[in-house]
Simulated scan of single mutants.
Amino acid sequence: MESSVSICPVPTEQQPVNEYQQLADSYFFGWVRRDLRSYVTKLACVWGLSWLIAGPVAAASFAPQKHLVQFILAGGAGALVFVMLILLRLYLGWSYVSDRLFRKTISYEESGWYDGQTWTKPSEVVTRDRLIVSYQVQPLLQRLKWTFGVIVLFVISGSLIWNFL
């Protein structure tokens, strides 16, 4: 397997397995790889900090002294926008790497955008990359999808509460 990788014409930083490793090692994209408690804590911190922007906007629309429930629901929904943007960025990054790992041929650039090439992976590289997708990346994408689903449930719940006010 090493011989196939060593004759790979793709620049090192554009090889899918190295792109995966970069994402896995990065602080931001590594959030999804953490244990569930740490992952949820990170997202809760983003949501809490987002209240610094969403809270005053919600207070301008719904005075907390008169309409406390509407203020909380509007501020919470506004803060969720930032969480959703973070989750979307995480999903797009991991999805991109998953796609590059899963493909049999990959596109790459030798020195710039004008000289794009494609390379067909040898079968052992395809197998290795697909194992990485199956056992490492797919669970992360699944976690992100579940997180999106939970947030949608929160939004629906908030909407139902809002309708009964």
Score class of each variant (00 low, 15 high):
E2F: 06
E2H: 09
S3A: 13
S6G: 02
P9Q: 06
V10P: 01
P11M: 11
Q14F: 02
Q14K: 08
Q14A: 06
V17F: 01
Y20M: 09
D25W: 06
Y27R: 15
G30N: 09
V32E: 05
R33F: 06
R33H: 12
D35C: 08
L36S: 14
R37D: 11
S38T: 15
S38W: 06
Y39K: 12
Y39G: 07
K42H: 13
L43G: 03
L43C: 02
A44L: 07
V46H: 05
G48R: 12
W51A: 10
L52S: 10
G55P: 04
P56V: 03
A60I: 03
S61K: 12
F62T: 09
A63C: 07
A63V: 03
P64F: 01
K66Y: 01
H67F: 08
Q70D: 12
F71Y: 15
F71L: 13
F71N: 15
L73D: 02
L73T: 05
L73F: 03
A74Y: 07
G76S: 15
A77R: 12
G78M: 10
A79Q: 05
A79M: 06
A79R: 11
L80A: 11
L80S: 10
L80V: 03
V83G: 03
L87I: 12
L88G: 08
L90T: 07
Y91T: 12
L92I: 08
L92A: 09
W94F: 05
Y96C: 14
D99S: 15
D99Y: 10
R100Y: 00
F102L: 14
R103D: 00
I106Q: 01
S107R: 05
S107I: 00
Y108P: 00
Y108V: 01
E110V: 06
E110H: 09
S111G: 01
Y114D: 03
Y114L: 14
D115T: 02
T118Q: 11
W119R: 00
P122I: 00
P122S: 05
P122E: 11
S123T: 06
S123L: 06
E124W: 04
V126Q: 05
D129S: 08
R130V: 01
V133N: 08
V137M: 07
P139C: 10
R143F: 01
L144H: 03
K145I: 07
W146K: 15
T147W: 00
I151C: 07
F154W: 10
V155F: 11
I156N: 08
S157C: 10
I161T: 14
N163L: 13
N163W: 05
N163K: 15
F164W: 13
F164A: 11
F164R: 15
